[in-house]
Amino acid sequence: MDLSGALQRVGEDDPNAAVAKAKEQLDSLDSVTLNIAVTGETGAGKSAFINAFRGLGDDDDNSAPTGVTETTTQITMYTHPTKSNTRLWDLPGIGMPKFKANEFLKDVKFETYDLFIIISSERFKENDVFLAKEIQKKKKNFYFVRTKIDNDIRSAAQKRNFNEQQVLCTIREDCNRNLKEVGNPKVFLISSYDLGKYDFQDLVDTLESDLSEHKSFALVQSVPVCSLAMLEKKKELMEKLIWLPALASCLGAFVPFPGLSVVIDKTVLTAYLLGCHYNLGLNEKSLTKLSERMDKPVSQLQSAIKSPVTSAVVNTLATRPHASMKTKPVKSLDDLLDSKFLVASVLNATEAFKATHAVLSEALNDMINDMRRVLQVAGLDG
């Protein structure tokens, strides 16, 4: 996209007004809230799903409590650890002795949520169908998720003539039989402990297509990178938005006098690159969780990071020297942007937009390649 296309996108002819509008749109992307309600019968695995969706383990700080008995007794909101505008709401299990379905309908505020995920770890039952019908009446979207598929597969694998695809097909057919009353909705089969398998990617694709543009952006930013397919989804989304920080960084874009230059605001570019770093899972906490889940030393995952951009971001965020940086000096993100010819002012808005767009595109591509290598080392590139 060139500058004229960017100006057209924000609906402004005046470059200065367009820069202000671009900043507003960037702010709105991070401020729009996405509220996801997670419900289902007692013990269905709601809390484990909420933790996995937020990239947390069951024992992490701020994780939703899990257990073999019902641990949710009241509606509880959990924010995403890096994207607080994404909120998952753990709703008490329908059918609990002290929490009947009719009481649930009185207490739950349907208007609060953008969508509902109805979870079951076995077959969907009467209460699940009841809730889906009530959600339909409120004209809200709902999705059926069948959890603990990994347990089913392990159990079936003990039998003679085991066929994983046949087991999955049987589970789907059983779920569909029990949901005919709500119009044969699609059922997503997932394992909260291995989101890269089964239907989690399909679930995210479906939610994204059903949400508004800004809410779908919040969704894709929030989900962890658990596979190459999810990485590609994030890449596609971030590439579409590069024009916004490129435009927003062009201070004094309208220059009426010859010889005056455009200043490029590196703080906007830095904020964008830091956001990409977290969204891709290249931050320390995400790499640590990945190393634990895949039983790989975190140092091996970090060794896959080759680009100076990612290293500069890590260096900017680090409170202590990074292990991989002890033998090789790493530029700060500010210095790195300077080295990309952004230290000097440029002569016009067109040149400024082109330069920043190119730098951000290259930086994003470098970080994407880093995360591809991380996934390969982790054994998630299949």
Rank of each mutant, 00 (worst) to 15 (best):
A352Y: 09
P224H: 04
F200W: 02
I36E: 05
D194A: 14
E351Q: 15
R9Y: 14
K109I: 07
N161I: 05
G57I: 05
T86L: 12
L241F: 13
R123W: 06
G55C: 10
C250H: 02
L3D: 04
Q302V: 06
S261F: 10
T42L: 05
L228R: 09
F200K: 05
I117F: 06
I153W: 11
E236Q: 14
A101I: 02
S28K: 11
I305R: 02
V268E: 05
E351N: 12
L342H: 00
Q166M: 05
C276P: 01
D366V: 00
S299R: 13
H322M: 06
G379M: 10
W243N: 01
V377L: 00
V145G: 09
K109W: 08
T69W: 10
R154Q: 13
K289R: 14
A378F: 13
D128M: 08
F49L: 15
S155W: 09
T69Q: 13
M230C: 11
L247F: 10
F341M: 12
T79C: 09
T33A: 00
L260H: 14
F110Y: 14
N176R: 10
D30M: 06
Y198S: 07
L360Y: 09
E70Q: 12
K180A: 07
L211E: 09
P245S: 09
S299D: 12
R372P: 03
V343R: 11
E236V: 05
R172D: 02
N369A: 12
D366I: 03
N184F: 14
L211Y: 05
G275C: 14
H277S: 07
K106Q: 15
S332F: 07
K340G: 06
L211D: 04
Q166T: 13
S249D: 00
Q136V: 07
A271G: 06
L364A: 06
S324K: 13
L337V: 04
K98Q: 14
D370G: 00
K133V: 04
Q74S: 12
V346M: 10
S303L: 08
K23P: 01
N178I: 06
L91H: 04
I190R: 03
E70I: 00
L301E: 11
P224Q: 08
A37Y: 02
Y78T: 01
F257M: 13
V263L: 14
V346C: 01
E351Y: 05
G379E: 06
R373Y: 06
G5H: 14
T76M: 01
L251Y: 14
L274V: 13
Y272P: 00
D381S: 15
V255A: 05
G275N: 11
K215G: 08
L301T: 11
M367E: 11
T327Y: 07
A37Q: 08
V255Q: 13
P185F: 11
A229F: 03
F341T: 08
S120R: 00
L364Q: 10
I171P: 03
S84E: 15
I305W: 04
T147C: 12
F110P: 02
N176A: 11
D194T: 09
A101H: 05
N163I: 01
E181K: 11
T33F: 00
S307G: 04
E181C: 01
T73E: 15
V314L: 08
V38C: 04
G40Q: 01
K233D: 08
I368M: 01
A132Q: 03
K306D: 07
K233G: 01
S307R: 02
D334Y: 10
P81N: 11
F162G: 07
D152L: 07
S345K: 09
S31P: 00
D174R: 08
